[in-house]
Each structure stands twice: as C-alpha cells, then as structure tokens.
Design a protein around this nucleic acid. Structure first.
Lengths: 161, 161
DNA sequence: GCAATTGGTGGATAATAGCAACTATTTTCG
DNA sequence: CGAAAATAGTTGCTATTATCCACCAATTGC
C-alpha cells in the first residue's frame, strides 16, 4: 500500500493559531521578535544594537542634556540597575558621559559626546527608515493608525500625558 | 541665592522621544516589554512562562496532534535548536511528548498529554483575557483594528496565506 | 548510488533580565 | 535638630535566552 502524497504532516497553510488569532499580545510579542532582529541587522556594527534601550537613551541624552538615568529608565521600562549597565556600556563606547548632578549629589546628569551626537544623526535616519521599510507592506495610513493607537498605549504605560 | 523649586531635572511630562515618536517599531518593542511582563505575572507558576514559544506550542500541539517541531518553530520565529530545547522543557514538565514520525524517521511528531491538555484549557482563558485587560484602555474597536493589521503583518512574516 | 536537502541535536558563548542587598544623599516631619 | 523614610545609583548573583555552528541521520533528486 502506497502512502498518499506523503502528507507533509501539517501544512503551514492550514494552520490556525487558536485563540491567539484574536490576541493582540501575541502579535505584539511575535512581531517584536521579527522587527527587532531586522533592526539589529541594520544597526550592525553601530555600537548600538540589541535592546530598545540604547537608541532611546542616545536620542534622549542628545535632546535633553543633563537628563537623568532614572528618567530614561522609566521611559524605556527598565529598572535602575539595568539602566546603569546600559550607561556603562555606552560610556565605554564613548557615546555619552556622566556627571554628578550639582543639584543632588545622589543623581547623575548625562551628556552626549561628539561621537554620540554623530551616531544620533545616523540613528535618526536609520531607525525610522527601518521601521517604515519593515512594515512597508502595510499601507501608509494603516501604519499611522496603528502607530497613533500604540503611541497612546505607550504614553499611558509610562505615564506621559 | 536660593535655588528655584529644585527643578526635577527634566520632568517626564515635557519629554518627547524624538524620531521614535513616529516609529512603529519603537512602540512594538516597548509595548512588548510591558505586555510580556504583565503576562508573565498572570502565568505565575503555570509551567508556561516567559517567551512566546510555550503558549503557542501548547495550543498548536493540542490542536494539531502530530505536528512537527519545525512547523511550530517557523510559526514562532525560532530556529530549530531553540525549538528543540523548548520541547525538552515542555516534555520535562509532562505537557507534551514526542514520537519519531513513521513517515520520516528524521522527523518527530508532537502529542499533547493529559496535563498539557488541561493546561491548554486554562491558557485559552487566561491569555486572551490578559491581552484584553492589558489593553483595556484602548477602545474595543481600535483594538480590533490594530489586531487586524498586525495579524496581516504576522501572517506575512511567517508566510501564512 | 551520490549529492544536496531536511529535521533534529548538542555545545559554547554571549547577552539579559530580574532580584535583592548596599551606600550615599536628600527629604520629611515630629 | 535629628531620626526615619525615600530616592539615585551600584553591584552581585542567578536564571534564562539567544545565536551560531558544527554535526548526524534520513530522505529526496537525478
């Protein structure tokens, strides 16, 4: 007895992912994987790869000289210890530097370096472009729609107005 | 000379996150962190925490008895070696078991166990509820909208029709 | 029957995250 | 004023993950 076309056991085409089909968190989590990998590739060798942290930090320090680690930590959803190590790293790469705040000697103020500022310029080009490219199969207006909604979600999560 | 109200260096309220403001990937990546943490809390102690993998795997194995590791790996965006370890784990917890496929002795077929099926029942309740709750501040219709768009993105990424 | 492909395993390394404990300041307030 | 509480940041530890790569076995194509 011959086997019928040797069923490729379950063909991906038929697959339905159960309740996850209607679960927003599933899509966020999975797409996050894909988009993060793609982004990492584009940032290859740029001293700022892996993890949402570095990019946001770089831009914030560039935009708000003297900003404090804990403020950034809050915005990128990391705890202070993770933030500290992130800063160690970026300082090690010569992208930012820290000073003790004259206002409060427990606190630090972060400043961009020349190298950091230069990198920020590149980042401002690459990162939004990567996002647009990656999601290019989603029509522009839908992209904006999703973004508007997720922006509100983000702001709500971190407590921005 | 007194210091004015001791400026809390930069107040989160004033902060604007530069180009990331309009970068979809930023929101996906950041919200992913928040929603994943929240989900982990809700799954506390349930043998299936951390990482998109386990939940999807459990449901797929429950729905498609005999499904192959590599099919799941593809759907959850992991490579075969990561998938293998994930299965080791779940097998260790007695949630699924593997058999060598009679059709192709390189391949395996995955089957749910009783414990796994029981857990799947719980998961089907908890996971979608967690997502709805977490995003409850987004109006229902907008949630659906985002989901419809991201579903297409996901399907496109993994090559589903 | 040989070469190329596919499915899965195993190892090593590196990266991350999350906790908890600790120091130093600053703030609160009785 | 002075003790207690809160805040900012650091450090150490542990567990978990991810990635990459090489590897073996089976299968498929020609």
């Amino acid at each position: 007895m011959r086997k019928p076309p040797a069923r490729p056991p379950i063909v991906p085409e038929d697959i339905n992912i159960d309740v996850l089909e209607d679960t927003l968190s599933f899509y966020i989590r999975t797409i996050n994987l894909a988009v993060s990998r793609d982004l990492d590739e584009r940032l290859e060798g740029l001293d700022v790869a892996k993890g949402t942290g570095k990019i946001t930090t770089l831009l914030l320090v560039d935009d708000y000289p003297g900003i404090r680690p804990s403020v950034i930590a809050h915005l990128i959803l990391r705890d202070r210890s993770a933030m500290g190590r992130l800063i160690d790293q970026m300082e090690g790469h010569g992208l930012i530097r820290r000073e003790v705040s004259p206002d409060d000697s427990r606190a630090q103020e972060l400043y961009i370096t020349e190298a950091g500022a230069a990198l920020a310029v590149k980042i401002r080009e690459i990162v939004p472009k990567q996002s647009r490219d990656f999601f290019s199969f989603i029509p522009e207006d839908e992209q904006r729609l999703v973004m508007d909604i997720l922006r509100r979600a983000y702001r709500r999560i971190v407590g921005l107005p």
